[in-house]
């Protein structure tokens, strides 16, 4: 159809709508421009630079020389990196599930309808998340104190062995996990919202069929809130790979006199991947090496996120069927 064959009105309308469209595109771009500028300047450009630096011996001061794959090869040779990877995986595979299960468990406790004063309990479970990470580290240095900490006082009063949480390399990571589990309130609130969204009729129907609470939990609740579990789990997993603040504070405080080459607490038991990366970049000024570590981390985070989403999506559709 040629344009001349169109009736006058339609032609005008089309012209008008394309003008309108262009106007919207201009406005849209204008309104999104703060983010676009920030994205180019603070995300895309730095990522490109990080990839470039990872192939150099960049240290911010001297001349920058191209070193090829050397940084990447060094990462695999560095025994501290191996330690850091192991510690990080420990947090991801032990700490994350413990935190998520506790959060879900507390949420189910809070989801009982007939108990009075629920908001008070909810507040109590949520309060720990308000404690700033730094203050929390100080607090747990005291709570987990070998001789005078409340946890060890409680443990020895019921006749259990009281470990040296922050001095024994075997117990430092469990100590961090205890601290993080105490702060699971955010995930708990999300689980609580999910539990409340499960339609009551599902449970009623199951009751009529004679299902008990355990069966209801595994066959109704869990499949229904599976997307939330996936979301929380993914977020916690990404968080675990980037585990930093707590470890940085704990190890810088507890690291007196010990092997300070890498500085990861007693026998580097708290040397996590990002902590090692940070120390390499800002203490030893090996920024090219640190950038290579960061690039590898980004790749791993993306692969793991993809896998979690891929597999849980499959499982979720399966369990709904």
């Amino acid at each position: 159809m040629t344009s001349s064959s169109l009736p006058m009105d339609a032609k005008k309308m089309r012209k008008k709508s394309s003008i309108q469209e262009r106007r919207f595109a201009r406005q849209g771009l204008l309104f999104a421009s703060p983010w676009i500028i920030g994205f180019l300047g603070f995300t895309i450009f730095p990522i490109i630079m990080a990839i470039y630096y990872s192939f150099t011996d960049y240290d911010m001061f001297g001349t920058t020389n191209w070193v090829g794959w050397e940084n990447y090869i060094d990462i695999f040779d560095d025994r501290y990196t191996g330690r850091a990877v192991k510690n990080t995986i420990y947090i991801a595979l032990v700490g994350v599930p413990i935190g998520q299960i506790t959060a879900l468990f507390l949420a189910t406790l809070l989801n009982k309808k007939n108990v009075k004063g629920m908001p008070i309990f909810r507040t109590i479970f949520y309060l720990p998340t308000l404690v700033p990470a730094a203050a929390c580290a100080l607090l747990f240095l005291w709570v987990l104190n070998g001789k005078n900490g409340i946890l060890n006082i409680a443990l020895s009063s019921i006749g259990l062995k009281a470990p040296g949480w922050l001095t024994d390399p075997k117990w430092t990571k469990p100590a961090l996990i205890i601290m993080d589990t105490w702060r699971c309130g955010g995930a708990m609130i999300i689980y609580l919202a999910a539990l409340r969204s499960v339609p009551e009729t599902f449970y009623e129907a199951a009751s009529l069929d004679g299902a008990n609470n355990t069966q209801k939990f595994w066959n109704i609740t869990i499949p229904y809130i599976a997307p939330t579990i996936q979301f929380n789990g993914l977020m916690a997993m990404i968080g675990a790979f980037q585990y930093f603040v707590q470890a940085q504070i704990f190890s810088s405080i507890t690291d007196y006199g010990s092997n300070a080459a890498a500085g990861g607490g007693p026998r580097n038991s708290m040397l996590f991947y990002c902590l090692h990366l940070y120390r390499k970049a800002f203490k030893q000024m090996e920024m090219g090496y640190a950038c290579a570590m960061a690039v590898l981390l980004a790749i791993v985070v993306m692969i793991v996120s993809y896998l979690i989403m891929y597999f849980s999506e499959k499982k979720i559709t399966y369990s709904v069927e």
């Binding site: 603070f42 995300t43 450009f45 730095p46 990522i47 630079m49 990080a50 630096y53 911010m60 990404i238 790979f241 980037q242 990002c274 990366l277 940070y278 970049a281 920024m287 640190a290 950038c291 570590m293 960061a294 690039v295 981390l297 980004a298 985070v301 993306m302 996120s305």
Partner: peptide, 14 residues
Amino acid sequence: MIPWTVTMIPVYSI
């Protein structure tokens, strides 16, 4: 989903 450590060093040097 991008880890903050990736942009940390270049942003710092900027």
